[in-house]
Each structure stands twice: as C-alpha cells, then as structure tokens.
Simulated assay, not measured.
Amino acid sequence: MFGIVDSLRQDARAAARTAALASAGVLLGIVGLGFLTVALWMFIVIVSTPLTAATVIGALYSGVALILLAIASSRRSRVTTDPAPAAAPPPPPPAAPFVQMAEGFAMGMQAGRAARSRRD
C-alpha cells in the first residue's frame, strides 16, 4: 500500500516539476520574443520608416500564425472517426529488441536450412 502512495507522490512531483519548467520556458520564450520584436523594430526604423517596420513585423507574425494554423489543420484531417471492428483482436504487445533480433536470427537459420535441403 505504501509503495503505491510513494509511487503516486513521485509521479505527482515529476508532473509538477515538468509543468513548472514548461511554464518557465514558455514565459521566458515570450519575454525573449518581445525583446527580439523591439530589436527588429529598432533596426527597421533605422533602415526605413516606422510604417515599414510595423508592416514587416505584422507580416512576419501573420505568416508564422498562418503556417502554424496550416500545420494544425493538416493533422486534424488525418484523424479517423471510424470505430475499430468489434471482432478484431488486439495487437500483440511489442517484443523486446533482443527478442526480435533472436527471432529474426532463428527465421534466417530456418530459411537457410530449407534452401539447403531443396538444393540437395
């Protein structure tokens, strides 16, 4: 009983740590994006006018948004809504890589013996 509780506590701590690090990463990414936007604005204003800077930065953000929306919509179309047939058996669990390698070796040995016996 205590093992289950300890396992749940460790899982909760790991999930909390992951959520905290992901939140900090997103927040720092947004702050960094803000600074990069201001730096791009300053650079374009030095080279051109504020109107050009606003147009370039707006077009950049709009382009990234359209690309992300296109990626999101393409993934949604791949999802199938047809339920699996009720009589279909569940797929077998994947074997360990070493077991798969041993099975492949054994199948190769059998194929070689069969080929040799056909030749004789």
Rank of each mutant, 00 (worst) to 15 (best):
A96I: 01
V56E: 00
A53F: 01
V79E: 10
P90R: 13
T18F: 13
V64R: 09
Q10V: 04
G58V: 05
A59H: 01
A87H: 14
T80Q: 14
G63H: 03
F2K: 11
I57T: 07
L69A: 09
L8Y: 03
G3H: 09
P50D: 05
W41L: 11
R17M: 05
I4E: 08
L27I: 07
D120F: 09
A114K: 14
D82S: 08
R116M: 11
F98S: 08
M101D: 04
A54N: 04
P94T: 00
D11Q: 13
A20T: 09
F2C: 08
L28T: 03
V79C: 03
A14Q: 13
P93I: 05
G58I: 02
T18G: 04
D120E: 09
A20W: 03
G25P: 00
T49N: 14
P97E: 01
S117H: 06
T49C: 02
A95G: 08
M42P: 00
M1E: 09
S7Y: 05
A19Y: 12
M107H: 03
D82W: 06
G34P: 00
A70G: 11
R75S: 12
P83A: 12
P93M: 11
A54S: 09
A53T: 00
P97G: 01
G3T: 08
V56W: 00
S74R: 10
Q10W: 06
L36W: 12
D120R: 10
E103I: 01
A12W: 06
F43G: 04
A12C: 03
G63W: 12
A72V: 06
R78N: 08
D6W: 04
L51R: 08
